[in-house]
């Protein structure tokens, strides 16, 4: 399954905005790790930004809600909001082909 993927973990750059220790933030991080391992074989480097601690950075990136995942590379950047529990949406966000039912 993973052999058909067009991306590899190496050229993916991710930044995840979370709000402190909120439950959805924790879920987002674990969901993201599981997704990456499943599709890329390994988890790429994820920069985690806590908006409560670093509000300015979040503002500069136009982050309104948490959690927000920003795929910085490959370009163009893509924002994905939510706890990343929706795998189909996440596949679309990473431009992976949809899984046939």
């Amino acid at each position: 399954m993973s052999g058909s993927e067009s991306e590899s973990a190496g050229n993916v750059l991710l930044r995840l905005y979370i709000a402190g220790a909120s439950p959805s933030s924790g879920r987002a991080l674990s969901n993201l790790r599981a997704f990456c391992e499943k599709h890329f074989g390994s988890c790429p480097e994820v920069e985690v930004v806590d908006v409560v601690k670093d509000a300015k950075q979040a503002l500069a990136d136009g982050v309104i809600v948490t959690p927000t995942l920003v795929r910085l590379a490959p370009a163009p950047p893509q924002k994905i909001v939510g706890d990343l529990s929706d795998e189909a949406r996440l596949r679309a966000a990473f431009e992976l082909p949809a899984i046939d039912a």
């Binding site: 905005y17 709000a19 909120s22 908006v51 409560v52 509000a55 503002l59 982050v63 990343l84």
Partner: peptide, 28 residues
Amino acid sequence: FFDAQWDPSTISAGDFELTGLLAMIRAK
């Protein structure tokens, strides 16, 4: 001013909340 316009290309993948925004506003 806080520009908090929703980016229409944003993909929603699961539940999210305003905690982050509120935290930013509180800080400001």
